[in-house]
Write a protein that binds this DNA or RNA. Structure first.
Lengths: 392, 392
DNA sequence: GCCCTTATTTTCCGCCGTCAATAAAAGAAG
DNA sequence: CTTCTTTTATTGACGGCGGAAAATAAGGGC
């Protein structure tokens, strides 16, 4: 076991520098003046903060010369050099591990996945280390250093402590995953909840860029929700937040594994939809793919199940919008494969149940490639690297 | 009409000074060392920031000498001199205006209320000015200056702009209330939503002191909710947040004035309870007082209505807890008069519907004297005074 | 080549908050 | 009674961040 190698640190010790870098990272090439405006700083401060970042190779002056119809001295935009550093993101599910190698701009360079033979921390750790090793080798071929490893796990995760408090799928309790993975890989490790990791990716690199209040809703086996309020991801006082899946939308609805009735997840989760289709149609659909296919063939019972799911999701989103008034809600997740089957119901239910100006909230969808969860994990690693010492 | 007089400003220009003052304000007498610990600053910084505040009279060295069994140099705690400045808080409802004169520690000195003869901005403004004038006279008798006026209005209020965007009770749209009231009273004016104002009071002077994530739920004619996330009151991107009253808890429930069915407010709002009792019992209860009395006499239908209300409120609170994971939820409001009638149902419904560690959230109640809303308005004025230039 | 405009850089400069040393105010020990 | 110990408060030097203003750079128009 190698010890943790002396990690390269990010040359931005002041809040301003880190804020400036984040601004450039999220908003693409920007002139120094523009950065100053967006970050609320003086142009002088930007020049000073940018120089060491350019010297260290994290920023580069953009040489693109788009037709500048401008008067005056031509602007000299800077952008992040994605190739300067690489990061690894790993998503651990109940039955497989997905890993990606991304650059500093969180663009995926390589993606891998392996089945998970063993849910014990030891076995999972070995699989993670193996995948990370492969990706480290790829990075070595590219001649670029890997500066961080992010791991996303569903359940109650304490990112600050690097501990998985409780993961139902893995049946883990209080596993100090960050410490363990750091010891085996030699990389700085960030561990976070999977939905929050996805939310970080949206906030820094996706549809949430520049928004101080938005929500990400994931639709799939479970229904999850990541929240950004006041520009920060909500973690909850007890480590759990965004449990939209267990918001009750119909007290007389079907029972949920959580012990209640009519949770969003008990109506719109994959298993709930399949079960409902079986009950309604008598067709022995085995999984989501078959359920979607049946609905696409026009089966009324199947379509009805998806319609109900859409209503439940729309109602759940309206609840979030009524309580938090976000600027935008991004719907994502594996369940989007069936999006055409419930898009209308989501929108209708949301529009009906959103109160007052909460209805102004922009509800949009984003496809979720299967590596996206791992990319979220990489995003948390990038975030930790950039904001090593300060508050997020 | 006098112009706005040259307002006395708070001698705390640095973030640290304002943070230090707020810490002392909320946590009572503290030694400088203790302040430094809580605010994450060095003791030296505290000493330096405290001096001008003592010179200006806002802080005083506490002369109380509680039995100090301590070794070493005796501590010299400082506290806020509540009598240094006064503030006026005004709550405007659909049919009356309540005003309080508070000191800097938000303790009520005088409370007044008058009926509201006229809902036009002009008439309301006249009433506010009249009440404010009376309280200014009282303050004059005390020989203490009034340094701010806070006005709380239900509905969509843009505090930053000082504008009431939309108030259903008053039937106002885009009324620049802060500007108008400042012109007539000569005081610096803060306008905020009533529930948010109450939340500010709890955050700075009540049960929310020291908590970075909590919620305030008000039960009465409507059901409202103020949220504090990451230590800041949530205002929502479109000015509306915390609309727990229009969270759907039962799609087959009674219709709500918002156009949906089964909103919390449509089940647990005062009018909903009265209506339901009338329908269930046939007794022509006229108002909440009679409804409570009937239930207290043991009438089954009335008790049932309150039980249903309690369930709806508990479910609403569980929804908030599931989504945000607050440390604590404070239930308050005029409806607490009937608290014994639904306390059990609130707790049961919350406990059942709270998911995982969200159930650790501490649900407590606080009585709500009728001047409390106005006190919230005063709290916003105090907040504005202390944080005149910086972000909240 | 000169002027105008806009972007960037340079040069101070103020000021906040930390550090380390010192003073202060007790009780404890002798 | 003196001295030591312990804890709190204060002081003064210092470093560094970020701002303001002025200087410089880099075009285009004429």
């Amino acid at each position: 076991m190698s010890s943790i190698r002396r990690a390269e640190t990010f040359p931005a010790n002041t809040p301003a520098a880190s804020q400036i870098f984040t601004t450039v990272l999220s908003h693409g090439p920007l002139t120094r003046l523009e950065v100053a405006r967006r970050a609320g700083l003086s142009p002088a401060a930007v020049t000073k903060a940018v120089r060491p970042l350019i010297e260290a190779g994290y920023l580069v002056e953009d040489v693109d010369e788009p037709a500048r119809p401008a008067l005056g001295r031509p602007a000299n935009p800077v952008r992040v050099d994605g190739g300067r550093a690489l990061f690894i993101g790993v998503k651990v599910t109940g039955d497989e591990i997905i890993a990606v190698l991304t650059d500093l701009c969180c663009r995926i360079r390589v993606a891998r996945h392996v089945p998970l033979p063993d849910r014990e921390p030891k076995g999972v750790l070995a699989s993670v280390a193996e995948l990370a090793g492969e990706l480290l080798a790829e990075a070595g071929d590219l001649g670029v250093a890997v500066l961080g490893l992010g791991i996303a796990v569903s359940g109650d995760v304490d990112r600050g402590a690097g501990v998985v408090r409780y993961s139902p799928f893995l049946e883990w309790r209080d596993v100090p995953l960050a410490e363990l993975a750091a010891a085996t890989t030699g990389l700085p490790v960030t561990v976070d909840n999977d939905v929050r990791a996805l939310t970080v990716a949206e906030q820094w690199f996706g549809a949430g860029v520049g928004l101080s209040d938005f929500a990400v809703v994931t639709v799939g086996a479970g229904i999850g929700c990541g929240l950004v309020v006041h520009g920060r991801v909500v973690a909850g006082a007890h480590g759990v937040a965004g449990e939209i899946g267990h918001v009750t939308v119909d007290p007389s609805g079907p029972p949920c594994h959580c012990g209640n009735r009519g949770c969003v997840e008990a109506i719109a989760g994959d298993a709930a939809i399949v079960r409902q289709i079986r009950e309604a149609t008598g067709v022995a659909v085995a999984d989501t793919a078959e359920a979607v296919a049946l609905a696409h063939r026009g089966n009324a019972g199947a379509r009805e199940a998806y319609a109900r799911a859409g209503e439940a999701i729309g109602l759940g989103i309206a609840t979030v919008a009524n309580l938090l008034g976000p600027e935008c809600v991004i719907i994502s997740g594996e369940g989007l494969a069936a999006y055409d089957l419930f898009a209308e119901q989501i929108r209708d239910a949301f529009a009906a149940a959103a109160f007052g100006s909460a209805a102004q909230c922009d509800v949009q969808t984003r496809p979720l490639p299967f590596e996206e969860w791992a990319r979220g994990a990489a995003a948390t690693a990038i975030q930790s690297f950039i904001q090593a010492d300060q508050q997020q």
